[in-house]
């Protein structure tokens, strides 16, 4: 039994590391966008388009890192488009986000047709297996560099929001557009750049899906991860460090179902497969309050107004 427990624990750790990266990138991107006072629900489309363009460009250029960069650039185009449309008067960022989500996925399917069959070069993992002797752990420690980049980025963003002028400007724009204007900051420009950068990160998250794990391009690749990542931002209260925790938690919870079945605990697998969603609900309920609004929510966000 303890053997089985170890297997499940290791599988959850491995799952957390493997599955969390796209969640992390998309939620960091969305965190930045929302900090500036705008919601971009279109990141699911950006993620899928990023996955497609990364795979396609990696296949055409022979270099997966060029693919990652292409995914980021494609993502920033989507972000820029969202940012540009939303600066127009009386435009709902939520509606535009949903339109962008449909556009991104549809356009990715259209352009991605020819890239389902070919095999593109994938991203290589950093092998940290030499640190341990257990064979299962050796596999779990094949970690993609993007995971570490994501971790570093979260720390930089967390520090940057609190300690840099740019961070202050983004937060100010998000909390009170009037104050920002009084300070001589162009609210639209800040939000445009924040949405563009957010799109870049979501695109990179997509590149991870198609170039590392699960590591192939097809039309069912994302199964809603971009949408879940947007929810993760609220879940982690607009704190980049908490985004890391939330992404890891979701990855680990997602690995629970398959891991339990692999050691023979198979009764009620539907329940275990739903673990990430049940967990979200539980934490949301536990941390919400009827007496105050969402803690940490940027004041300008259309959901808080």
């Amino acid at each position: 039994m303890s053997d089985a427990l170890t297997t499940v624990a290791v599988a959850m750790f491995a799952g957390a590391v493997r599955v969390s990266t796209p969640f992390l990138f998309v939620s960091l991107g969305e965190c930045l966008t929302e900090k500036s006072g705008r919601i971009n629900l279109g990141l699911e489309g950006t993620l899928v388009f990023g996955a497609m363009s990364a795979y396609a460009i990696s296949y055409l250029s022979g270099s997966p890192w060029v693919g990652v960069l292409a995914a980021g650039l494609a993502g920033s185009m989507f972000g820029a488009l969202h940012g540009a449309i939303c600066r127009l008067p009386k435009v709902s960022d939520i509606a535009i986000g949903i339109a962008m989500m449909l556009f991104g996925t549809g356009f990715a399917f259209f352009l991605g047709k020819g890239f389902i069959q070919p095999t593109a070069p994938r991203l290589q993992a950093i092998d940290l297996g030499f640190l341990v002797s257990d064979p299962q752990m050796k596999v779990a420690l094949q970690i993609n560099p993007l995971f570490f980049i994501g971790l570093a980025l979260a720390v930089v963003m967390w520090w940057g929001f609190a300690n840099t002028r740019i961070g202050l400007v983004v937060r100010m724009t998000g909390d009170s557009a009037t104050t920002a204007r009084a300070m001589g900051v162009s609210v639209d420009l800040v939000r445009f750049f924040a949405t563009t950068a957010g799109g870049f990160l979501a695109g990179v998250g997509g590149a991870f899906l198609s170039l590392f794990y699960p590591g192939s391009w097809n039309e069912g690749l994302s199964s809603g991860q971009g949408l879940m990542a947007v929810a993760l931002v609220i879940f982690s209260r607009w704190n980049p460090i908490a985004c890391v925790g939330a992404a890891l938690l979701f990855g680990a919870a997602g690995a629970l179902g398959p891991a339990l079945q692999s050691v023979g605990i198979s009764q009620g697998y539907h329940f275990f497969n739903a673990a990430p969603h049940i967990l979200t609900l539980a934490i949301m309920i536990a941390t919400s309050s009827s007496k105050r609004s969402l803690k940490g929510a940027p004041g300008e966000l259309s959901i808080t107004k």
């Binding site: 493997r18 596999v139 699960p214 192939s216 997602g254 398959p258 891991a259 079945q261 692999s262």
Partner: peptide
């Protein structure tokens, strides 16, 4: 291992890894 739906690439990869483990 039942994944619960016809196309869930990430969970299918997790399942394959769990079986290998």
């Amino acid at each position: 291992i039942f994944t619960g739906d016809w196309a869930l690439p990430v969970r299918e990869a997790e399942a394959a890894n769990a079986l290998a483990d």
